[in-house]
Design a protein around this nucleic acid. Structure first.
Lengths: 209, 209, 209, 209
DNA sequence: GATGAATGAGATTTCATTCAT
DNA sequence: TATGAATGAAATCTCATTCAT
């Protein structure tokens, strides 16, 4: 029954982090005040500063916690014995499922960190690039074994793949939530279909060969 | 010799806007102060408020000015008699050339506006969607005439296309500037190649048909 | 009618400085808030920060303004054609008259800066030492010309002289204000009498030699 | 082997007081936090509050402990059968040796208590005056028995004497530590020489009589 | 149009103190 | 005794915005 940190009822640090997700998602990192986080967490103002050095450190913690999970998952997927297309599907699927599971957290990570690398996010560039590199690695192997063409570099392919996913999430964040599970499933298919299959009507290109 | 607004030497409003681009790009919208803009423009503090209602309005103006140009260009390209793949190439090319021409402005539009969309400026979402719609239109027509497959919706195709471009720009912004013109040219090719041609080794997909 | 800074009514910067003297003297530098200064000056909170970077800079300014006057006066006195004892009398007299004229300002300088060199005052150590050096110079010349004994170094003599004055002021500050002009006059005499004449009954010391 | 308070190894209260000396001396009373004291003492945060009502009380305790020793020593010296000049030498010597023995503690008492006197701790003023009074008493007796002149009041003489000592210590605190024992010894001599012997070339003034 | 002094609400952050264990 | 998490008042400082000239 004990929590990770104290032996008592609840882990206040965790409570604060979870409250921060809600607040960051609702009002944005800059617009919200530390007191909003404390209020949401039903905790005294100063306790936020007891556990974190600054509002920024709260965001950093949130990002790193989640991004490290992503990196592990990508690595794990890469290790599976699957065709590359299905590996990409699994990765995109994991990210979109993450959104389904905790839209607020993903919103914060994408809007406030990933797309905001200007101010403080620079710290996290390295982490973000790690993800790109892992994806590029998958592409590179697929090209080596002949299942992917070599027309673009693996690095660029990773970029395009991640870009498509990010746009999907951005659309969900700002325009409208996916309503049904089917909608999410379709997005997963579409990403892979577009990036792997391309838009061109296939036969034509096959004919030129 | 008269400027657009006054009869005197310089259009101070323009000077302020240009200064804002530099400052927003350098320090970010949130981190910079209105006085930074005034300083950069070598203009008195209050003059910024003479021409703009708020710091936010400066950003809005910058975004709209440029985004409207983009919308016009996309429309114009769509009107040309070109295969869809080349239309997409032209659009992506225009955006990347815009970056080459004024990296600061593009940085501001891509990095700052998206974040702002969360806090204020949901106005821009409509404008951004307009661009998606125009691109989707191109894709739809291509599908209708048979040059693009129908495996994904035009809307999604537009999303993936724009996502790839945005990732390219984000990489240039945060990681490193493209050094040579050839690098930009290659990025243009890669975007179209990936989105239209796909990653899959072509014969396989042809076979499945 | 014009003030030193603007052409209009009052120099707000000066008003703030004068208010700070009152407030620092009343509550002490640490205990008082910047808002106390603003209130006392009948000025908006932010104006203090318009003119000064921090509360500390207000104190620094106050100290330097006055201390520089002291340094000039000491130099000027040193230049006069007077016996050394009268030079010291003039210097001590100036300091004690300064207290009479503006007890609050002197209290602030002595309690918050001179005796508090620990935290920020370290900046001002150089300035404070300049005064010691000028006084030591007077003593050194007096020793050279034979009017002062050589039993102690000029540096130490300056220390003892200034120490006596500071104790007098500290007494006035914390214990009780000098009531009459005569009391101040007596203090001036006492300082010189003690430092120059010594406590010893003179003949005795002459005899022991 | 039991300590003064508990039966266990160390007197934590003492440990806290000693740690406070180090911390107050290093960062100043205002700038340091209670947690700094606890850290330095290697003791839990709350224990400081177990033994002392406030941070202020820690400073008070430190001051009183030491100042009472000083008062006793002065009384004891006064009781000895010595010429007044040597009594003053002994008192000045004791203070300066105290500094040699524990510079941090003396720094705290001289620098922090005086400033505190302004804000809180006017209590200490009485204690400080007690020391002045004891010294003045010595001077008064010397004047009564004819070994000191009557040109200045005993109260003022005490002031000047203590002022000289304080300046010496202030110099050591802020400028530079005395390097050798000889330097300290010289300072002791100088204080008495200046205050008792005076700066004036004595024979001349004796001759004129 | 142009200036920059003046305003003041509000943000982050600190830290003395309390208190449950 | 001893611990250190928890509290929250209060302080400094920032900066968008207004306004008199």
């Amino acid at each position: 029954m004990a929590t990770a940190r104290t032996g008592s009822g609840v882990d206040k640090r965790r409570v604060i982090l979870d409250a921060a997700v809600v607040v960051f998602a609702r009002r944005g990192f800059h617009a919200c005040r530390v007191s909003d986080i404390a209020d949401e967490a039903q905790v005294a103002y100063g306790l936020v500063y007891h556990y974190f050095r600054s509002k920024e450190e709260v965001l950093d913690t949130l990002f790193l916690e989640r991004w490290n999970v992503l990196l592990e998952v990508i690595s794990e997927i890469d290790g599976r014995d699957l065709p590359p297309r299905e590996k990409l599907y699994a990765i995109g699927g994991f990210i979109m499922d993450s959104y389904r599971h905790d839209p607020d957290l993903m919103k914060v990570i994408i809007v406030e960190v990933t797309r905001a690398a200007n101010t403080f996010g620079r710290t996290h560039l390295g982490k973000i690039r790690e993800a790109y590199a892992l994806i590029a690695e998958i592409v590179a192997k697929a090209q080596a074994e002949g299942s992917f063409k070599r027309k673009v570099t693996p690095q660029f392919a990773a970029l395009a793949f991640y870009g498509a996913i990010e746009q999907v999430l951005t659309g969900w964040i700002f325009d409208q939530q996916p309503r049904a599970e089917a909608e999410v499933e379709q997005a997963k298919q579409f990403v892979v279909e577009t990036i792997c299959g391309g838009l061109d009507a296939a036969p034509a290109s096959a004919a030129t060969v």
